[in-house]
Structure formats: C-alpha cells, structure tokens
Design a protein around this nucleic acid. Structure first.
Lengths: 151, 151
DNA sequence: CTTGATCCTCTAGCGGCTAGAGGATGCAGG
DNA sequence: CCTGCATCCTCTAGCCGCTAGAGGATCAAG
C-alpha cells in the first residue's frame, strides 16, 4: 500500500499543502496517520477524497455543501436525494451569477466603448459611474445577498 | 445647505450604516463634519460620492480600483486613460468569470440531469464529483488566481 | 557533515463587509 | 419633565476559504 507525504499528496491532487492542512482542520479530510517524526501519511483513499473536494470546490460548492456530499459518498446506503438537491441548488446559484455578470458586462462594455481620451472631467467612464441613471441595466436590483460575493 | 445623519445618508443611497463607516475607515469617504455630540454630518457631495462608490462596487470594481477612479473624478484635469484602463480590466475580469461560470453551469446541468433517486452509492452526482474524468469541461485549467473568488 | 528541501505548529492577514457589546444621545408622546 | 425607543457612537470579533510567514525539526542527497 502506497503512502504519501503531504507534499506528494499536494502534487498528486494539485492542491496546496497549507490547503490540505486547512481541510483537515475543518474536518473535510480525516486526521491521517503520522510517522514517528509526526509527519502526515496519506493513502489512496485520501487522494480520492481530496480530488472529490477539489472538484466540488471548482464547481463552486460551499464547504458545508461538500461536507454533506462527502457524508453521502461515505455512506452509500443513504438516499441520494440530498445530493441532487445540492447540485440543483448550486446550479441555481451559478445561473443567477451568470445572469448578473452578463448585466455587468453589458454595462461595462458600454463604458469601455466610450473610450474617451481627454481629461477626467469629461471622461465617460467616470461620468457613467457617477450617474447611475445613465444605466440601462437593472444591476441595482435586490439580488441574492452575496450574489456579488464569492463565486 | 442640506445635511444628513448617517442613517439618512444610508437610506438615500441604499448603503448600510456600518458600510458607510467602513468606507470612511478605509478612506473612500472623507471624514465628515460632526455635531457637538459627535454625530456624523453629510452633505450633497457625500451622497454623490457614496452613490459613485456603490455603483462601482455593483459593477464589481475592487476597492483599490474605486480609490483610483475617485481620485480621477476628484481631479478633472488629469487624463482619463487610467479610468478607461480600469474599466477595460474590469470588463476582462467579468468576461473571464462568465466563461468560467458557463463551464460550471454546463457541468452542473449534466450532473443535475442525472437526477438519480436511489442510494447514494449509485448517485450520479456523487459519482461525477468523485471522478473528474467524467467531465467534458476543462474547468480545471489554471485560470486566474481568484477567478473562483470574489466577483 | 552539510546543505537545502520538506515538514511541523501556530498566528495573523486578505477582501469587503456584517454583527454585536456597551454606552451616549435625540426626539416624540403623555 | 419624564419615559421610552430610535439612532448614534466606538470597539472588537466574525464571516469564507484560504494564504503567508515565523520559528523550528527532520529528511535525503552529495
């Protein structure tokens, strides 16, 4: 059975060493065995689990959601409805963000197109920022709290 | 000349009171006058400045970028090339995020479509998370650091 | 035996707020 | 004038998901 140092696990999964320790600290990864000199030792299962976590993070799942997904993955007899719900929820989050960003893109494009080259006093960009009424888009609508936040 | 309490300014601009104090603390808003009993007093210029900040934040500009934009807005004789550059940069950031989110959406849709209803052991969602090779999308490409982070 | 890479723990910082403690005012109704 | 509640003040700590650095121990190669 193979066993990996934390550095090797990091390279194997493309996750940084401090991040691995962080995941252990918050309980996403189990506490691994240790060598006599207290160094962490990982096995194949850890590689799989960390890859799972990494992939879920890339898809934008919050750590708490990943915790739930891991619990499901750990216990194959539990019903997977929860997993479907989490995926659907995450999909909705992503779709909301896309819409929102598209509105911002539209607005930024209008600003960037102006591309004035004189004094700041006449700058369209600055003017557009100062005068919201110049905006066509409703990017000031309530939106989900945090829609502007993390992915 | 009108003068507003922090609460009124908050209502006028739809920015929360603690956020206004925060903006003052980090130097986006100037320290306002105070009443005898140490309460902040704002004027029209503050309303405009805060609206500017709010709008820029809605468009996803980082605080540091807003600082630069405000400096430009404060000094109309400076050339506005910097403002154009910041807008273009922000547009690029937003476009990158949109692309990335679209890839995630694609992947999440595939996952959600599976919509299995049995045991977690057979769950497509969990399976998809565990086995990255099932992914068509290249959402694991390097990407800008922080592309997954704040808007 | 030395060098340099890797590992350990611990604490602090990032951005952009948000929440809460603990207290001082201000303002309206009775 | 008093009560009561809204608003204000400062200050500190927390959120998320890491990331960076101090200060030291250990390992593997030459």
């Amino acid at each position: 059975m193979t066993s990996l140092s934390i550095g090797r696990l990091a390279r194997a999964t493309d996750v940084k060493v401090p991040t691995i320790r962080f995941y252990e600290q918050i309980g996403l990864l189990p506490e691994p065995e240790r060598t006599q000199s207290d160094r962490r030792l990982y096995g194949e299962a850890d590689v799989r689990r960390l890859a799972f976590i990494k992939h879920a993070r890339q898809l934008g799942f919050a750590v708490e959601a990943i915790r739930s997904l891991l619990a499901l993955a750990d216990d194959p007899d539990r019903p997977c409805a929860e997993a479907n719900a989490l995926a659907a929820e995450q999909l909705a989050v992503v779709e909301t963000k896309i819409e929102r960003l598209q509105a911002l893109r539209h607005e930024l494009r209008r600003m960037a197109r102006a591309d004035c080259d004189g004094r700041a006093g006449d700058c369209r960009v600055i003017e557009a920022l100062g005068d919201h009424s110049l905006c066509a888009d409703d990017h000031d609508r309530p939106a989900t709290p945090g829609a502007l936040g993390a992915l």
